[in-house]
């Protein structure tokens, strides 16, 4: 089904608004995020891997 133009424009306005809202935080964290230390990568890959496997399982169940 074709999305109405007004809905496309309204959605674009909403996204641009959130981009402007997020920009200061993105700039701040890009500059000030602490460097990754040993063990950090594994500490993130374990939960992310769990999420990916779980979502695949959900997608296969429907």
């Amino acid at each position: 089904m074709e999305t109405p133009t007004w809905l496309q424009i309204g959605s674009a306005v909403l996204i641009i608004g959130f981009l402007i809202y997020l920009w200061p935080a993105a700039r701040h964290w890009a500059k000030n995020s602490p460097k990754m230390v040993k063990g950090d990568l594994a500490g993130v890959l374990i939960p992310f891997g769990g999420v990916v496997l779980f979502v695949i399982l959900l997608m296969m169940s429907v």
């Binding site: 496309q8 959605s11 996204i15 981009l19 997020l22 935080a25 993105a26 964290w29 995020s33 602490p34």
Partner: peptide, 25 residues
């Protein structure tokens, strides 16, 4: 664990996804 090292990745990632969503509209 301290996950603050992910801050830059998450916020820049959200901005990239929003730009992609803008194109996707």
């Amino acid at each position: 664990r301290d996950f603050s090292f992910m801050g830059g990745f998450i916020f820049i990632g959200m901005m990239v996804v929003m730009l992609a969503s803008l194109v996707g509209i």
